[in-house]
């Protein structure tokens, strides 16, 4: 492997996957993922249920490591570093690459402590009050909670909880934020707020979002990958990327028939 590939320098390509296959035990869940994810862009993964979009997303911060039978073939580069090399510390990876989950999952702690948890782990020595405020402001929830920072994060409404979770992810100053269907448990107004927020956030962060909602992908993202799923003769379902294009191209003039059918709502 060339040495320049290994050096952790900043590049405009944040992630690059090469022939990525994802397995749970013997079962191949996703095959042949070859994509580049660009800095300060919003990349959306769309596709029918069970096509492996969340699985791919969770490879980017090694969250799949929590599943015992999980392993990959192929390579994922993060700024040229092999994310799955043996000398990579997954804990360090997750500090660079934050995550927002499908179900809002604030800790059963105060709003303040929800935000402060990550920075405290990292040994943050600066002004915690200020960091909490900035993080909450960036996640557009400061006005909602500034008078009740000592209230439980779990007592907020669903949309507020999700913004709190985004603030919590921002507080550790990651480079990338992965979002796994962040709006699927939210009402339409909260969903729009989160989408507006994503446009703000992409100034500072690279965002990868999995969504079931095609309007969301077309409204909010710069590039879109369409995943589909094929069933083999044994009934096992394996996901793969059909098409990965700038979002307008994928929605206006897709190359593949399957993409055309999916984005026009004819299946999925």
């Amino acid at each position: 492997m060339a040495s320049n590939v290994q050096s952790p320098t900043q590049t405009d390509t944040v992630f690059r996957t090469e022939n990525l296959d994802i397995y749970y035990g013997d079962f191949k869940a996703v095959r042949d993922v070859n994509i580049d994810i660009q800095k300060n862009q919003i990349t959306a993964f769309i596709g029918p249920s069970g096509c492996g979009k969340s699985t791919v997303l969770r490879c980017f911060n090694r969250l799949n490591d929590l599943i015992k039978s999980f392993h990959i073939n192929g390579t994922i580069y993060y700024h040229g570093q092999d994310l799955y090399a043996p000398d990579i510390d997954p804990v360090e990876v997750r500090r660079q690459i934050g995550m927002v989950f499908q179900q809002p999952n604030p800790f059963p702690k105060t709003i303040y402590d929800n935000i402060a948890y990550g920075p405290r782990l990292l040994g943050f020595k600066g002004d915690m009050d200020e960091l909490v405020e900035t993080s909450l402001r960036k996640a557009a929830i400061w006005e909602d909670v500034k008078d009740k920072l000592k209230a439980l994060g779990t007592d907020l409404s669903g949309g507020q909880q999700q913004r709190l979770c985004i603030a919590r992810a921002i507080a550790v100053k990651p480079e990338v934020i992965l979002m796994d269907e962040p709006c699927s448990a939210l009402d339409p107004i909260s969903t729009l707020k989160i989408e507006d927020l994503m446009q703000e956030l992409k100034q500072d962060y690279t965002i990868v979002i999995v969504t079931h909602n095609m309007q969301q992908a077309s409204r909010a993202s710069d590039r879109t990958a369409f995943f589909n799923v094929e069933t083999n003769e044994k009934g096992k379902r394996t996901g793969y990327i059909v098409e990965y294009e700038p979002t307008e191209v994928l929605f206006q003039s897709p190359r593949e028939k399957a993409t055309q059918e999916y984005v026009s709502g004819r299946f999925g």
Binding site: N61, L63, R94, F101, N105, P108, K109, R168, V172
Partner: peptide, 23 residues
């Protein structure tokens, strides 16, 4: 989901257990 959130923030396993799960 608490464990995932904590691990996703870059907490080690033992941090997650002692600071999130146990409380």
């Amino acid at each position: 989901s608490y464990r995932q959130a904590s691990v996703g923030l870059g907490a080690s396993k033992i941090d997650t257990v002692m600071k999130i799960v146990l409380p």
